[in-house]
Design a protein around this nucleic acid. Structure first.
Length: 846
RNA sequence: GCCGGCGUGGCGAAAUGGCAGACGCAAGGGACUUAAAAUCCCUUAUUCCGAAAGGAGUGUGCGGGUUCGAGUCCCGCCGCCGGCACCA
């Protein structure tokens, strides 16, 4: 193939049109206030998840999502929308820093080089981004505002009375530092010695770092945290108004993990202290036969009896030495130790033993549970192993065996005043009882934890914070941006001290104050980039009011971005963090909408030709550059869309690329032919003649289907239909020019270079990408006669050509009159005749 | 273990409950050509009957059900992919 002559001269015209669009500013989106801004047009904000500009360059997986959004962007422009379709770079992050350490080059240099390469690649695919709005998270003019948003968080608190973020000045308590949305805490964190950094829980997979797969240990460390848990309920509620795949909403709901239950206070026998437990099944309180504390629970030391101290300490030590990996792997078998202490079950005064076990986590609820082995799998397993009593207190409504554990809902038994109540009622009654006796209360718990927001890295946004006399203090807005110092040596220190701690001069803010040396995680920059795109060069605000009102709020929906396309890997973290920041900014009056992204679509992964995930080690990586040089950008775009449904996972096939390439060449030859010298000239078959009725019908059916399929993101079937149309005209001689006037605008979002080139060679006015979108004429689609199938007992026995407007009765008579049908039903009684006009007739005979 | 998603030709895939396999790939045959490539045309789910025209049957992971009619809806399984994983 590569040695062959190209079937059409894409190598010549594709770069030419790319340059033309760029120079003409063809896809520039005007902002409110600009001279050429037309406020009467509706807006459409279509956003890609911006890439991390890696050294490997653009991937065909990127191109899939980006092509889908590009088609939609171009389509909406042609439909008269003001389209915001921007691109930028999520360019802070660990790989750049590690590469820098390896090669000694400054990450600023390698990042700039990678960005240039990504931009070149994206432009070579012909994407219609408004490059005037390009942003990079590493640009001080950008991260100045990331730091500014951090200051908003620092200077705000969550007011439980209003359920909103408010300026810290409205807080009337005595300890503002204990309620800020950005706060400092000593946290057991995931320290990765090899990476020399602390990782977020989300960056640790199976006890190893997600990047690199290095072991991770738990260590207590002073960290910046963001109080995302305060927004748990709002983040949950907000999902209802969004057009996201239900699966993704569910993922977020599960991640937030709301559960309703009760806190119950247990007195410790012969000791002046009590332990609070959280339970979702307060109705099973009578069945609590023992209690378990997390090994790290602060009361363990207090309550353990002298005889048990040795065993307890030994157990605690063994748990502490386990990495997260060991702890999960050893989960199969329950372990634990008796503390020697007893707690008093408040509901019946029973003395129950208190154990410690690592299946109870300090980080959830109160770090202590009441164990109800009859109705909880884990407690059952534990009780069985350590021969603790099991008491049934809920009977299964569909009553069968009571030998094992029953965790469902039923009727309370052996439960005193709860007996006979259904689980829901029993929960209510016991909660009211506990509240009345001041022994507990109903409450809600979340799995969601606060967001660990600091990293021990060089290549990230520095915090706009200084330390003075052991206290933190925020810088003011006019001190932003805080830029990292230029360092020769940004290697990890080998301790949890961040690399910035080595920049002694930079560190010193004043004689008495030192800068914070942690940096922000990569999520920070991507939490708000969609806002910056609306007003990328504004130096007075992170986003101008007018720009926000138009691009984000004009459609009067909760989410501002009309369509957001990206991979599922960001289903939880990025999308949750961005929603959190957005809500804070909204509460503080900085943005108009309550949610960032109205509609979300996840593109499926593209696998290698071998059906495996693409990876360098497997050697099955397809690069966009290689496809473009062989078949051109239009073929790359078209194939990525023709492969199958956008959201589905699908394998690459070079043969498939050739297929769409042939199609594009066929379109080319609808308009062009080669002369004796082998030059492309306008086809002599072209003529200004009207379409015949079949051509008209197919052309208008194509307009209709392509239009609706683009709206449905069903690009593969839209392309099929354009193939049908093209096949129809391949042999038409003379060939109506009108066919190309219809086809080229339809094709233009998909294969913009080819459409543009032919449009211009045919001498049609303007740019193909600026044409109004064709509108179909429904009346041309109607056929006078239709063929319908006649079935006998569901099997097709005859085909009937009949007038489109025939009545049911006429169709039935015609069907029954058919010789084949009479033969097929001979000797049988016709029980029923079902007539579906335009489709079929089904005769039921016995 | 729990929660999602998906199972259709040799392959990628189509199909408001209404003729399964559009469109593309691959394969086979033909036209054009000195020849090849490219291009264009035809065939192509499968089994059986027939010399042929044509005809009969079976087919959407498996087993049931609802319906005149099920790839599509319902119930129960199996397989693959993704997420969560002691969250009390």
């Amino acid at each position: 193939m590569s040695t062959q002559r190209k079937q059409y001269p894409f190598t010549e015209f594709e770069p030419r049109w790319q340059q033309h669009w760029l120079e003409a500013g063809a896809f520039r989106a005007a902002n409110p206030g600009d001279a050429d801004f037309d406020a009467s047009k509706p807006k459409y904000y279509i956003l890609d998840m911006f890439p991390y500009p890696s050294g490997d360059g653009l991937h065909v997986g990127h191109v899939e999502g980006y092509t889908a959004t590009d088609i939609l962007a171009r389509f909406h422009r042609m439909q008269g929308f003001n389209v915001l379709h921007p691109m930028g770079w999520d360019a802070f992050g660990l790989p750049a820093e590690q590469y820098a350490i390896k090669t000694g080059q400054h990450p600023r240099v390698t990042t700039a080089r990678n960005i240039d390469n990504f931009r070149r690649q994206l432009q070579a695919v012909g994407f219609s981004y408004d490059w005037d709005r390009e942003v990079s998270t590493t640009d001080p003019a950008y991260f100045r505002w990331t730091q500014w948003i951090f200051l908003q968080l620092y200077n705000a608190w969550f007011n439980p009375a209003t359920c909103k973020a408010e300026p810290i000045s409205t807080y009337t308590g005595t300890e503002p530092d204990s309620v800020r949305l950005a706060y400092v805490a000593e946290m057991p964190v995931n320290w990765c010695p090899q990476l020399g950094t602390v990782l977020a829980n989300e960056e640790v997979v199976d006890g190893k770092s997600e990047v690199g797969g290095f072991p991770v240990e738990r260590r207590p460390l002073r960290q910046w945290m963001l109080r995302i848990t305060a927004f748990a309920e709002r983040l949950l509620d907000g999902l209802d108004g969004l057009d996201w795949p239900e699966g993704i909403k569910l993922l977020q709901r599960n991640w937030i993990g709301r559960s309703k239950g009760a806190l119950v206070k247990f007195q410790i026998a012969n000791a002046p202290c009590d332990v609070e437990v959280f339970t979702t099944r307060p109705d099973t309180l009578f069945g609590a036969t023992y209690m378990i504390l997390a090994p790290e629970h602060p009361l363990v030391a207090t309550i353990t009896t002298p005889e048990q101290i040795e065993a307890v300490e030994k157990y605690k030590a063994s748990v502490a030495s386990k990495s997260d990996l060991d702890r999960t792997e050893l989960n199969k078998e329950k372990s634990g130790v008796f503390t020697g202490a007893f707690a008093i079950n408040p509901v019946n005064g029973e003395k129950i033993p208190v154990w410690i076990a690592d299946y109870v986590l300090m980080g959830y609820g109160t770090g202590a549970i009441m164990a109800v082995p009859a109705h909880d799998e884990r407690d059952f397993e534990f009780a069985t192993k350590f021969q603790l009593p099991i008491r049934e207190v809920v009977r299964d409504n569909s009553a069968n065996d009571t030998s094992s554990c029953f965790a469902g809902e039923g009727v309370a038994v052996n439960s005193g005043f709860l007996d006979g109540l259904q689980t829901a009622e029993a929960k209510q009654k016991i909660t009211a009882w506990l509240e009345e006796k001041a022994l507990g209360r109903g409450t809600v718990n979340y799995k969601l934890r606060d967001w660990l927001f600091s990293r021990q890295r060089y290549w990230g946004e520095p915090f706009p914070i200084v330390w003075e006399d052991g206290n933190h203090r925020a810088l003011t807005q006019d001190e932003l941006p805080v830029i990292q110092p230029d360092m020769e040596d940004f290697k990890p220190t080998g301790t949890p001290e961040p690399p910035l701690s080595k920049a002694l001069e930079w560190l010193k803010y004043s004689d008495s104050a030192q800068r914070e040396t942690n940096t922000m995680p990569q999520w920070a920059g991507s939490c708000w980039y969609y806002l910056r795109f609306c007003d990328a060069t504004n130096s007075d605000r992170f986003i101008g009011k007018e720009a926000d009102e138009y691009w984000m709020a004009r459609n009067a929906k909760p989410g501002g971005v009309d369509l957001y396309v990206g991979g599922t890997e960001h289903a939880v973290l990025h999308l949750l963090y961005a929603r959190f920041w957005h809500k804070v900014l909204h509460d503080l009056g900085h943005v108009a909408t309550p949610e960032p992204f109205q509609r979300l679509v996840n593109q499926g992964m593209i696998l290698g030709p071998d059906g495996q995930k693409m990876s360098k080690s497997r050697g099955n990586v397809i690069t966009p550059d290689s496809v473009i040089s062989e078949y051109g950008a239009d073929s790359l775009r078209l194939y990525e869309m023709f492969m199958g449904p956008l959201e589905q996972m699908k394998p690459w096939s070079m043969k498939g690329v050739e297929g769409v390439y042939r199609f594009l060449a066929r379109v080319w030859r609808l308009a062009m032919q080669e002369n004796q010298e082998g030059e492309w000239i306008l086809s002599s078959d072209l003529a200004e003649i009207p379409l015949n009725s079949q051509q008209l019908r197919i052309a208008h059916a194509t307009i209709k289907k392509v239009t609706s399929d683009i709206r449905l993101l069903a690009f593969n079937t839209a392309i099929s239909q354009m193939m049908v149309l093209t096949n129809e005209f391949v042999n038409a001689k003379p060939r109506p020019l009108e066919a190309l006037r219809i086809l080229l605008p339809l094709l233009s979002p998909f294969a913009p270079h080819l459409a543009e080139e032919l449009w211009s060679r045919l001498g049609f006015a303007g740019l193909a990408s600026k044409q109004p979108w064709p509108v179909h004429d429904e009346s041309l689609l109607v056929e006078n006669e239709v063929e319908l199938a006649v079935q006998v007992n569901g099997k097709v026995r005859e085909r009937l050509v009949i007038s489109k407007v025939a009545t049911k009765e006429e169709i039935e008579i015609a069907a029954l009159a058919s010789a084949k049908i009479q033969e097929a039903t001979a000797g049988q009684t016709i029980v029923k005749v079902v007539v579906v006009p335009g489709k079929l007739v089904n005769i039921v005979a016995k």
